[in-house]
């Protein structure tokens, strides 16, 4: 081991090689996950050193190695953000990464955190109705086979749950390199009465959009491989039928 390692992994950024894990986990199986019974039972102070009265407003769903959160942290210093990741080692990597970054830059990363959970099952356990302003779905697992379409993190019936935790005017960002998945996501969001697609014109003024393509690790991988990147962004609207 080199000299730097001896200082401990908390000050140095964690090394990814210790945290690699098989890519796909089954989101429907019973994982052993610690989740709060209700949002009121959630102790967010544990995650954010300066939480105060603020509540979490951004959620990166399936955050992977956390690149997006790290990029957004200094852009929105007043907003609390959470990365939600189901894989044990990968979420642990993000936690260690944030802990190390906080030591290196004491003023910057206090507003980001990561937790291990199944975001397809437990969002209402963490967030109250209308709590979130932004949700991110970057490069979600494509689950190509038809039989596994119900594993897709965007699907017809799950959108109701995302609409529930998002406030009106809240925004969902999706990016994928898989054309078929892009079309699938657009189809389901457009069919859902509580979402409308945001036009490219409107997106130009949103500073987040630029960061979506290659701040995350998966995005960087797609860039290296010269893959396509399909963006689709949606706004949560009021129920047109009430």
């Amino acid at each position: 081991m080199g000299k730097e390692d001896e200082v401990g992994d908390l000050v140095n950024l964690p090394q990814k090689r210790y945290y690699r894990q098989r890519a796909h986990s089954n989101p429907i199986a019973d994982h052993c996950i610690d989740y709060p019974q209700t949002p009121d039972d959630m102790d967010w102070d544990k995650y954010y050193p300066n939480k105060g009265e603020k509540s979490v407003e951004f959620a990166d769903i399936g955050c992977g190695y956390g690149g997006l959160l790290i990029t957004l942290a200094p852009m929105f210093p007043e907003s609390l953000m959470i990365g939600m990741e189901i894989r044990v080692k990968v979420s642990d990597y993000v936690m260690d990464r944030i802990a190390a970054l906080r030591i290196q830059n004491p003023d910057v990363y206090k507003n980001v955190a990561c937790l291990r959970t199944n975001a397809m099952k437990y969002l209402p356990n963490y967030f109250k109705k209308g709590q979130l302003k932004k949700m991110f779905f970057l490069y979600p697992d494509p689950h190509f086979k038809k039989a596994k379409h119900k594993w897709r993190i965007i699907n017809k019936t799950l959108l109701a749950e995302y609409a529930y935790v998002l406030r009106e005017d809240g925004i969902v960002y999706t990016v994928t390199d898989v054309k078929d998945l892009h079309e699938w996501m657009v189809l389901h969001f457009e069919e859902h009465p509580l979402f409308v697609r945001i036009t490219d014109e409107e997106l130009k003024s949103d500073p987040v959009v630029d960061k979506l393509f290659s701040s995350s690790e998966e995005g960087q991988k797609v860039t290296r491989n010269n893959g396509d990147k399909f963006l689709a962004v949606f706004r949560r609207i009021r129920d047109p039928s009430v």
Binding site: A160, D239, S241, V242
Partner: peptide, 10 residues
């Protein structure tokens, strides 16, 4: 309009 969730009883 079932796509609109009113609440959860948790």
């Amino acid at each position: 309009n079932c796509y609109n969730i009113l609440s959860y009883c948790l």
